[in-house]
Write a protein that binds this DNA or RNA. Structure first.
Length: 543
RNA sequence: GGCCCCAUCGUCUAGGUAGGCCUAGGACACCGGGUUUUCAACCCGGCAACAGGGGUUCGAAUCCCCUUGGGGCUACCA
């Protein structure tokens, strides 16, 4: 019976690395019949964003990761927001202070930085110089009166610390390697290290699966656990997921990509860009200079304005780009973990079936978008029609598509004829033409030139129009027969006949299969679109 | 700079804890071919790896050491 938790800080959207951590902790809890706790680590008041907790809950739910205890649903370990647990931390903090295992200090950031610099020059590891005698109550009052910041540091015991890790084995940290770290900030909030250790103990967390970036924190956490008389959870430090550009996959990826895109463009109208993003030109210039990062809607707006595609980092990015939650879960599970053998496509239930904490790999893995797409293609092809329809509907709603108004029957039909699509976005793009006004079709210039203005494209269209006109009512079958007969009569490939029709009804050369497309669009609309096309490009043909 | 982690095809990886089953398997990508009304999808075939150097051993992808390379941490962020 494993009790695990996912403990994000509410700083924005749930990113893929966080989701992966959540998934593995969830898998372990479910597999062992234990429980999975959601805890919000909001001890950094400066970085918290108000909607983040709700967003994280939404993103986890989309993935199908549910929690037994957490904000909103409560549980025996309430509350689940660390900002609401300060009384608890204060109690343990006081204990440490009373036992002289922690102490106050008053340096400013500048003073500390100077010390760090000195250490670096001397090629030494910086550790805080612990005073011989810890400051007492009156010292604290004096410092506060003088306006000095007061933080509490934990007095690290001087001894070798061995971290026993499920994935890495025994990792040794020499005595004195880890200095006295801050456990309470000057705003009197506990730091992550302290709050996390206390909560994990109180909530009965037995296993902690987290990223390798925490491995160096673990000796500190263990020392804290020992000093407080806590038990020690089992640790598993996973490999990190790296992006294609090298380096940890992080939320900084998107702003970085956007900044590079802006710099790469020779001429950019900063004012227009600012307007599109809803921010000031000063803010843009600071962003370009690398000083600040605008919020996500502004980033997205700028990317759209410039026509650049940003790498997906947040769970919601994948949702908005047409990936299925099933795809994401399966793919994330295979980043740094695998069940052995050749099997790759495994839905959540199967994953649960074969999950084994001892099968994590040690080396970092690269996030391969090509493989992700192929997984998505596979899932679109194989999940049930009902699930696919539900996913498609929520996708259309999320991106506010013109297809949003379609009913379930139509949508199901679209899904059926778009078999083989790689993402929901592909399907949406392909079928969008069905929902546009006849005179709102945008013609792709290349398609017009290549298909309509050459090889008698317009003349063929004219003939097709006549044949459709003559039909009492149309069907996919009738359209198919008509086009095939025509191709045969004219001694042409079907493509030569079908392509002009395709361009006429949807404006480009990409659409669902043509017979069904015409059928779904209907006789009247098809004729109207052919008519508009003919009138628009009449007389422009050449050769 | 200091500390920590890691190292099999371009990528994700199987194999490594019990060394011979590995002339190293699968998947994605790529290349060639087939199918085809567009884009996809689908089918068949192909290319492609144990980072380098020392050991240990009858025998090493598998164990040990060094080098090199990659990654992480180094905050009053989590």
């Amino acid at each position: 019976m494993a009790v695990t938790r996912f403990a994000p800080s509410p700083t924005g959207y749930l990113h893929i690395g966080g989701a992966r951590t959540a998934l593995f902790n969830w898998l372990l809890a479910r597999k062992s019949g234990g429980k999975f706790i959601l805890r919000i680590e909001d001890t950094d008041t400066k970085r918290n964003t108000p909607t983040a907790t709700e967003q994280v809950k939404k993103d986890l739910s989309w993935l199908g990761i549910n929690w037994d205890e957490g904000p909103g649903i409560g549980g025996e370990n309430e509350p689940y927001l660390q900002s609401q647990r300060r009384g608890i931390y204060d109690k343990y903090m006081a204990k440490l202070l009373a036992e002289k295992k922690a102490y106050y200090c008053f340096e400013t950031a500048e003073e500390l930085n100077a010390l760090r610099k000195q250490a670096e020059i001397a090629k030494r590891n910086f550790t805080y110089p612990r005073p011989e005698i810890f400051p007492n109550d009156s010292d604290v009052k004096k410092a506060e009166a003088a306006g000095k910041p007061a933080v509490i540091r934990f007095a690290m015991p001087f001894e070798e610390i061995i971290v026993s890790d499920v994935i890495r084995g025994e990792v040794r940290f020499a005595a004195g390697e880890m200095g006295d770290f801050v456990i309470q900030k000057s705003d009197s909030f506990p730091t992550y290290h302290f709050a996390c250790v206390v909560d994990d103990e109180l909530m009965g967390v037995t296993h902690i699966i987290r990223g390798q970036e925490h491995l160096n924190n673990t000796p500190c956490h263990q020392a804290l656990q020992d000093s407080l008389g806590f038990s020690r959870p089992i640790y598993a430090h996973m490999s990190v997921t790296i992006s294609q550009t090298g380096g940890k996959l992080s939320k900084r990826e998107r702003p970085k990509a956007l900044r590079n895109a802006i710099k790469a463009k020779a001429e950019i109208d900063i004012e227009k860009l600012a307007k599109a993003a809803g921010i000031t030109t000063d803010e843009i210039n600071e962003f370009i200079a690398g000083k600040t990062i605008p919020d996500m809607p502004a980033i997205d707006a700028m990317a759209e304005f410039l026509g650049v595609v940003l790498p997906e980092i947040n769970v919601i990015d994948f949702f908005r780009n047409g990936y299925l939650p099933e795809t994401m879960v399966n793919f994330m599970a295979l980043l740094g973990w695998n069940p052995g053998g050749d099997k790759e496509i495994m839905p959540l239930e199967e994953l649960l079936d074969c999950f084994d904490i001892s099968r994590f790999s040690k080396s970092n893995s690269l996030f391969d978008r090509d493989k992700l797409i192929s997984f998505n293609t596979e899932y679109i092809r194989t999940i049930s029609k009902e699930k696919l329809l539900a996913h498609f509907k929520s996708y259309l709603c999320e991106i506010d598509s013109v297809a949003n108004k379609a009913n379930d029957v139509l949508l199901a039909k679209i899904l059926e004829i778009c078999e083989g699509a790689r993402t929901l976005a592909d399907i949406e793009r392909k079928c969008r033409f069905l929902f546009l006004q006849n005179d709102k079709i945008e013609y792709d210039p290349k398609a017009v030139k290549k298909i309509l203005l050459k090889n008698d494209g317009l003349a063929i269209l004219q003939i097709i129009a006549g044949k459709i006109e003559a039909m009492q009512e149309i069907s996919a079958e009738k359209i198919e027969n008509m086009l095939r007969n025509m191709a045969e009569e004219k001694q042409l490939g079907l493509g030569k006949i079908a392509q002009p029709l395709r361009v006429a009804i949807c404006g480009n050369t990409i659409s669902p299969p043509i017979f069904e497309s015409v059928n779904m669009l209907g006789k009247e609309n098809t004729l109207a679109r052919i008519d508009i096309t003919l009138r628009t490009f009449e007389g422009k043909a050449h050769g």
